[in-house]
Design a protein around this nucleic acid. Sequence first.
DNA 1: AGCACGCCGACT
DNA 2: GTCGGCGTGCTC
Length: 805
Amino acid sequence: MTIFIAEVIVDVAAYPVDRSFDYLVPEEMVSLIELGSRVKVQFGPRNVLGFVVALKQDTEVPLEKIKPISQLLDIEPVLTSEMLQLAKWLKHETICYEIDALQVMLPSALRAKYEKIITLQTDIENLPDALKPFFSQSSKVNYKEFEKNNLLHTLKMALKEKVVVLENVVKQKGQVKEVRKVQINDELEKLIALSKGISNRAKKQKVLIEWMMQHVGETLEPDTLYHETNTSPQVLQAVIELGAAKFVHEEVYRDPFSKEVGKTNFLNLTDEQSLALQKITSSMRDKRTETFLLHGITGSGKTEVYLQAIAKCLEDGKEAIVLVPEISLTPQMTERFRSRFGELVAVMHSGLSVGEKYDEWRKVHQGKVKVVVGARSAIFAPFENVGIIILDEEHESTYKQEDNPRYHARDVAIWRGKYHNCPVVLGSATPSLESYARAKKNVYSLLTLKERAMKQALPTVQIVDLREELKKGNRSMFSQELIESIESRINKKEQTVLFLNRRGYSSFVLCRDCGTVLQCQNCDISLTYHRSNEKCKCHYCGYEEFVPKFCPQCQSEHIRFFGTGTQKVEEELYKLFPHARVLRMDVDTTKTKGSHEQILEAFGEGKADILLGTQMIAKGLDYPNITLVGVLSADTSLHLPDFRSAEKTFQLLTQVSGRAGRHEKKGEVVIQTYTPEHYAIELSKAQHYEPFYEREMLMRHLAGYPPYYYLALVQISHEDVMMAAEYAQKCVEWLRSNLSFNVSIIGPTAAGISRLQNRYRYQCLIKYKIEPDLIPTLMQLIKLYRSQWIKNGILLSIDLDPTMI
DNA sequence: AGCACGCCGACT
DNA sequence: GTCGGCGTGCTC
């Protein structure tokens, strides 16, 4: 007799169980179970969720050890075999648990929710008195109830006496949303017979059934029925009991799109655009695994190239994945896709609820849509016949996931491109140095758009030296030039966007007598003052407190708020331009769902003269009346202790400048800075990417950073400083003796934020060019950590290819 | 990870 | 003599 065995990866993220376990497939499941199915299994003493990663007919494991699968959770498997392979690759590439790699590909609604349930075993009278009231309603009670009421001790006794038992149940988080509809009986004769049999007193029932006779077999919403026939639920209920119709439950998708969009057509392409499109489509036609870098200046119409390439892909009967950075996933952006491809588009981003995300995912899974537009995780869209993958704004750091698995969407995109033999298009006005270097070495194919699509001139950029302003005695944050420019816009009824680089610019709370700055209790970072609720908040761990009346150090009452947050700039703007209408966009004003869109929409409709904001306004803003962009301080991001700070600054400035004058009216940009001579600022003036690239590459070469060297970052943290330092040292020594001399190891050094959530953090950086043994060696380090160091309270994480240091 | 098993000190 | 501390080891 043949037996069927499934290899299962269980939902337990731990080092010793990071492998598959064999389970017996019960007979009734044999024809249903598939690779990628979710199953419920007993694992040791508990019930857990697992994924079937292989099916086979024999096993090395002694049969008496093997348990059967207890339940199959999906009729259709949730993961394709492509995903299973991808998970193995991710596990190796990012050094994570296989289960984490699998879970990251699915919407969180499909993750398991574990609950402990206590079941009564005997008569309620045999229970200790304290427990009795809990079981008066039902014999099953959630463990949490006892936890809440401090009865765990009594419960433990009861468990020991076996008057109750504890079981772990696995539940699914997400729910398929259903609506109740009425399905009218499809036999006309039956309806006629019923209508004849109805007593003359039941007039409404008669009306309803007669109406149904006109709509035999249809399924419709109860409300339509009531409306059409002027009846009520009671009448319908009666008619249903007679057998004229029945209630059915229908699966529906939650609709995250609030408004309808019209249809738009293809725009005419410039020569450059057509050439780029043609290269991409011919690569699709030849099923080449080719990665393109589409380098097009702001306003050059990259999106139109994407749209037409996707149209071609759909014509070939294939699917398309489009990734955009989270912050630019605005309605303006998604509408462009929906207006072109209508119902064929699913949108995935973090603003959706768990249920909405699940629905969008199901549309893809069930083949109802052909195009996905989404943030990072949309790269795992479960399409089976991908024709093109597009990463817009390829240089964005949001494509890198900052917790496990620490994957980069670009790498996953290229992997999937290889799997499906389809092109991957990386698009940007300011490509990451890594990508541009690869394009230059012909690893990627470079496509260039040098002209703006509608031939608009680039905005004129003026760089203002704030040191000169200071000499002139202007100590405000607005230079004379900027003030004049804003004034002229207000007079001309044109709009201004003011950009504040928030990093290092948030307002802190300072004691004027002793100089103490309020610090977070858990992190080594100063608290940020929020005027809206008069509190100070830690942006890293969420800790908050009311602004103290007296300085905690010297008891002085001279406490003041210091620094330049968006709120402060707003106040100053009102002083300078009392009649200007200002919209502020920052973490405070965009807390509620949809407020982001509302603000942008209001601005687009001309309800304000000035839009003031942080990073989030740098992207996607495209309104014809914006003719001035002001950057209040360009250099705040320049002095961060990160080797990418110059690149980030250049990208940001170019991006922001690109917001001005995208339509008929000419744009102007004013950049204020204390270091106008810095190449990142100077070269962003004319959007000269190439010279910037050359210059920055030289710097990277000299300092030994990417793209010349690869990086790996190991972070060690502990509640005790000494322990953290000691183990960081241990770690470095271990790496030195296990890696070859081709590798340079820097550290240990204290991390940028040396204390976070009450843990002291150290890190060391590994720079290498070629080190084939790096991953195996790091895996050994992880093994050492997971098997020994972890017991002493050490936390260690490895980030291959870190984006921030 | 999370749970059982098992071996030693301080309590009714 | 028993309760409970947490070191060790296993999970198909």
